[in-house]
């Protein structure tokens, strides 16, 4: 079934179509949710809520952009809503603008477990800004709007996240960390 056919089936509330769509996108979206939520259970809750909204609001998808991008945005929004209930982003601290040079060997790879471990060890504010900037591709201005913080706070959270990650890579003896 093509993506277009899947979307049409979901618009008709066809359960088989919904299951197929879920099977196709849930692994990737679960990865997204895991990056934001600390526990696997929380990530599953966010994923469920996100897919529920996908099916509920699928009429709003007019086919203008990427469907996967649309679902991903819903998952990110859902993850942020989940975090907002537990964490106040406006309490995050702003620090002076320090340039931190962090480079690794080009052939260096991370294993999934290490990625999750490192993200898990970051404070919520750092982790969220890191996710939005590095992996979702938002600009600091957009992150500031989304989280209700200033642009400088967003920038400093990212710098601190980078610094913390570098320290973790060194500690885990990843070769070529500079």
């Amino acid at each position: 079934m093509t993506e277009k056919e899947l979307i049409e089936a979901c618009k008709r509330k066809d359960r088989k179509g919904q299951k197929l769509l879920y099977d196709r996108y849930s692994p990737k979206m679960f990865g997204v949710c895991k990056r934001y939520a600390r526990s696997r259970e929380d990530a599953e809750d966010v994923l469920l809520e996100g897919f529920f909204k996908v099916f509920k609001n699928i009429e709003q998808f007019k086919g203008a952009g990427s469907f996967e991008g649309w679902i991903r945005r819903i998952m990110v929004n859902e993850s942020l809503m989940f975090l907002r209930k537990k964490h106040n982003f406006q309490l995050t601290v702003e620090v002076s603008n320090i340039e931190i040079k962090t480079e690794v060997n080009a052939e260096q790879d991370l294993i999934a477990e290490d990625i999750l471990n490192m993200l898990d060890k970051l404070p919520t504010g750092y982790r969220t800004v890191f996710n939005l900037y590095v992996l979702e591709g938002y600009k600091h201005r957009e992150i500031a709007d989304i989280l209700g913080i200033s642009i400088n706070t967003s920038k400093s959270q990212l710098i601190l996240a980078k610094k913390r990650m570098q320290a973790m890579l060194v500690k885990n003896q990843y070769p070529g960390v500079g």
Binding site: F30, K34, R35, E103, V134, K162, G176
Partner: peptide
Amino acid sequence: NKKDIFDLFRDNEHKLDERPDGKL
């Protein structure tokens, strides 16, 4: 032969993809 630490994460993000529990 050096790359930014952020690129390291970008390149390996897909490794987090995983099928959720069937009960979900």
